[in-house]
Structure formats: structure tokens, C-alpha cells
Amino acid sequence: MDGVGVAIAETLIKIVRGYLFAGLVFSVPFVIFGIQRVDPSVKGWNVLFRVLILPGLSVFWPLFAVRLVRGKRHPVERTAHRLAAQSASHP
């Protein structure tokens, strides 16, 4: 493949690596200090649990960054019955 193709591949790989690295930089302090603010079910200091969720946090870190900044917790799922119950109680 020509040099342009190599340059495109190198750039894309750098972008993905940069995104994941930024995620890791956010996620390590987040699992230590911030995680209980978005999910109160995280209790105690289970190190292995925190390590296990690190790869996923490195991918979805913008979601948790936004929740942390806005002071929001995880949402409740939206199913047809939950939505119907909600609209019935708040017509």
C-alpha cells in the first residue's frame, strides 16, 4: 500500500490509542475516588472489582465523566411497562 494508506492507518491507530489512554487517565482516579458518586452500589474497597471494570471505563469514560460533572447517578432502565406506569402517574 502507498504512503498515504500507511499514514491513514498510523493516524487512526494513534487516535484509538490516545482515546483509550485518555480513558485510562480518567478511569484510574475515578474508580478510586469518584465511582461511588455515580453508583452508590459500589461499596468497600474491592480492588479486583475496580480493576475488572477499568477496560470498560477506558471505552465509556466520557459517559462517566459527564455523570460525575453533572452529579448524576446511573439511570433506571426504560421498558414499555415502566414508561406506561410513569405516564399514568404523571399524565
Partner: peptide, 20 residues
């Protein structure tokens, strides 16, 4: 497969919600 394995813990079910 990486995204699926990385989000396999119940923490992800709660934080993404089951439908998502």
C-alpha cells in the same frame, strides 16, 4: 468481543441499564 468482555460485569448492566 473486547467491548463485550469489558462490559460483562453487573456494574455495566446497572450503569448502562439492561436494555442498552
Amino acid at each position: 468481543f473486547f467491548v463485550m468482555a469489558a462490559t460483562s460485569h453487573d456494574f455495566w448492566l446497572v450503569n448502562l441499564t439492561a436494555p442498552i
